[in-house]
Design a protein around this nucleic acid. Structure first.
Length: 155
DNA sequence: GCCAACGTTGGC
DNA sequence: GCCAACGTTGGC
């Protein structure tokens, strides 16, 4: 099993929206970066755990945990000219962009801000915290996942 | 709203 | 295939 961190803009699709979805499940659309796409297409498997991260938030940070419940399939929002994520380069017979379905596991009782993560020695190496990081989907280690989960849901 | 960082595009 | 210009991301 792998562990991931995925960013969603806090003012666009916060974790509260996922909470309200039917079966607390949604499709993760709008990834338009090849490196992130490759992770989704090639490496994400059912049961993988994902840190749901709020970017552009007040403050930015980890809001909860979800898990992959459906593996990569074409991101249909790329085919729709009306959709903000429309990309004419992606054809139905040769889709450029992929998505997975994720289901909410838990929303954190304690929101874990990016400052909290920066101040935690065990999380220093995370790609998220490196200068200039822009990837919206990135792998993290089990240790990092467990640490964030511990900070988010204290006993 | 600013702007550093970085990915993508397109002329050559 | 290089690289300048441009667009986007995302923390601040």
């Amino acid at each position: 099993m792998k562990y991931w961190l995925m960013k969603s803009e806090a003012n666009c699709y916060p974790i509260e929206y996922l909470e309200k979805e039917k079966n607390q499940t949604t499709y993760w659309d709008g990834v338009r970066n090849y490196q992130a796409r490759n992770f989704i297409r090639d490496e994400m498997k059912i049961g993988d755990k994902v840190i749901f991260y709020h970017s552009n938030g007040e403050p930015p940070g980890a809001a909860g945990i979800c898990e992959v419940v459906k593996e990569a399939y074409p991101d249909f929002t790329a085919f729709d000219p009306e959709n903000p994520h429309y990309d004419p380069k992606s054809k139905k017979d040769n889709p450029a962009w992929m998505m997975v379905d994720v289901k909410l596991v838990t929303k954190f009782k304690n929101f874990v801000s990016i400052d909290d993560m920066r101040n935690n020695k065990k999380l220093q190496k995370m790609q998220l915290l490196q200068r200039g990081n822009r990837l919206s989907v990135m792998p993290i280690t089990k240790e990092e996942f467990d640490e964030i989960a511990k900070m988010g849901v204290p006993y």
